[in-house]
Design a protein around this nucleic acid. Structure first.
Lengths: 147, 147
DNA sequence: AAATGATTTGCAATATTGTTGCAATATTTT
DNA sequence: AAAATATTGCAACAATATTGCAAATCATTT
């Protein structure tokens, strides 16, 4: 909880209950979370609007980042080390497990270069890998919602 | 229009006006389309629900595929050659132009392999590149909506 | 080409998700 | 502790998505 305090402070944000609670959820969740995961989480009682605004604020302040999906949801994730280092969040690989359905940031796996057709100039690249994650190969209880 | 007919037939779907019209839009659009693009397109007059159901049917039948985004929309695209060949739609690169905002399938650009941490087994990989597209380097009129 | 059956469409109702303004509350600063 | 600032929750609204069902369209058979 002290960690949460410092993250907020460092970003120049007020330290409020809502924000600390939502940060807590991200720390508790190994994978990425959607708005709905947070809003519907049993232990919290925060207004929908506040959740929206908190997520937006966190994105704007580099505390969490968005992960592309093909199902009308936005996933958000805290990066393991990166956020304080301020690296580019689009440069690491995201992994979606087809068994537990959790989305992981593979912070250590950098997105490889790719050769584009003439005339296409890349600025940022995102990579999403689907497969089975380490937890689902040698399974043990997973505390958090399916993502 | 004959092409549209055959695509639907081959998929074992009834050939209806709505479906042909929506397929037309995909052929006319160089880039990917969102539900809203189709629904709001001036020249068509198809019920929202039909658009939803048509897109779903097309995805299920491999006529179009979904493209991951971070902005709560699903983009759909027809693949240039692939759909009839039945290749994996997750294996080519998608390119989003930051100028015209169109999304292109780079059918010829295959997604490179990437080394994952121990325990992670890949099944499919998607790659999304943002940058400037060929049209926006040597611009000429673009007929279709911004995507 | 007409009749039959199967599929698809559009409407209506409803559910879910996202946004805005503003007053009340909480946090930070002085 | 008071003033200034920032955040929250409510209410209203807007946009997006889903479902059931009757009417219309399409495919098939005759």
């Amino acid at each position: 909880m002290l960690q949460q305090f410092e993250i907020l402070k460092k970003a120049g944000l007020s330290v409020t209950e809502s924000r600390k609670t939502i940060l807590d959820l991200f720390f508790a969740a190994q994978g990425a979370l959607a708005h709905a995961d947070i809003e519907k989480h049993s232990s919290i009682n925060i207004d929908r609007v506040t959740v929206y605004r908190t997520l937006q604020t966190f994105v704007e302040n580099g505390i969490i980042h968005q992960i592309p999906t093909t199902d009308n949801t936005i996933l958000y994730a805290l990066c393991k080390d990166s956020c304080e280092a301020g690296h580019h969040h689009d440069e690491h690989v995201h992994f979606i497990c087809v068994v537990c359905n959790k989305t992981n940031c593979l912070d250590d796996v950098m997105v490889p270069m790719v050769k584009l057709p003439n005339g296409f100039l890349p600025i940022q690249t995102a990579m999403i890998v689907k497969g089975t994650c380490i937890d689902c190969r040698s399974p043990h209880p997973q505390p958090f919602p399916q993502r």
